[in-house]
């Protein structure tokens, strides 16, 4: 027994009141758990993807022997840059969401999130918005760097923001589901190699729809990443390969479905609660 405890004139403890949403808890989860953690490893988590995206653009510009631009109205760099920005942004959102959850699971600190007075919905919102913020941050830095060297007209900034948000949220959800499902790091890297990389590389980041051999167009048209990139590119440069509205609809629909799935997974505690 500590003697000091009796001297303390403490106010009587009351239960903290909050409304339908635990705003303080949500903010703590979003800022401390998701965003600040990401920024702490800035060299690896931001500079790495930024450097490899710049290398990709450089390689493409050097490897192209002139003349075979993707479309008559755009240079190759103008075509490739919006795609690379979108791909990096989505990839970072995926990575960040999955890595957060796997780390928390492996270190056992996921208990801290599950025990806190946060509903499953709040947990999903906190984690996914955090991962989305990290993706948008990286994408924003890339856009700033590229716009120094390459002429990007930004025809429709609002639409660009919309598609960036859609793409990053969609892949944040994919990352959360992968994070919940993964029991080891192998599982995560398998998902990255066999799901995210193919979606990202076979997405029209680097080539337009007309380049795809006949009979394989469905591969692109069924790929949500293609629609995210296409919409973003349309907003930045005005060049579009497919219907923008149906793309926006597809991304929104998929994001909602995956968000509901993630919410269910947290609610039932799949691979999280014993």
């Amino acid at each position: 027994m500590s003697l000091g405890a009796t001297k303390e004139v403490s106010k009587p403890r009351t239960i903290r009141q909050y409304g339908a949403i635990n705003w303080r808890g949500l903010w703590a989860l979003y800022s401390r758990k998701a965003v600040l953690r990401f920024l702490r490893y800035g060299l690896e988590s931001i500079a790495g993807p930024v450097a490899s995206s710049c290398i990709f653009v450089l390689v493409f510009v050097l490897a192209l022997d002139g003349g075979t631009a993707m479309s008559p109205d755009l240079t190759l760099a103008q075509f490739v840059v919006p795609g690379i920005v979108m791909f990096t942004l989505a990839h970072v959102a995926f990575d960040s969401a999955a890595v957060m959850i796997i780390h928390d699971k492996q270190d056992g600190v996921i208990q801290d999130v599950l025990m806190a007075p946060l509903t499953p919905l709040e947990i999903v919102i906190g984690y996914s918005l955090g991962a989305a913020t990290n993706g948008l941050l990286t994408g924003g830095i890339l856009l700033v760097i590229f716009s120094v060297f390459i002429d990007l007209p930004f025809i429709n900034p609002l639409m660009a923001i919309g598609f960036a948000l859609g793409g990053t949220l969609l892949f944040a959800m994919v990352g959360m589901i992968v994070g919940i499902w993964s029991e080891r790091w192998d599982h995560f890297s398998a998902a990255e190699t066999f799901l995210v990389m193919p979606l990202g590389l076979l997405s029209g980041t680097f080539f337009s729809l007309e380049r795809v051999p006949g009979g394989f167009e469905w591969l692109l048209l069924g790929n949500p990443m293609f629609h995210a990139i296409n919409g973003f590119r349309a907003a930045v440069t005005g060049h579009s390969d497919a219907s923008i509205w149906s793309g926006a609809l597809l991304i929104t629909g998929l994001t909602v479905i995956l968000a509901l799935t993630t919410w269910r997974l947290f609610a039932v505690g799949y691979r999280i609660k014993a």
């Binding site: 493409f60 490897a63 590389l201 076979l202 680097f206 080539f207 380049r211 795809v212």
Partner: peptide, 11 residues
């Protein structure tokens, strides 16, 4: 192989 596809298609 994905890189191969990308570069072959693009360039």
């Amino acid at each position: 192989l994905l890189f191969l596809a990308v570069f072959a298609l693009a360039l």
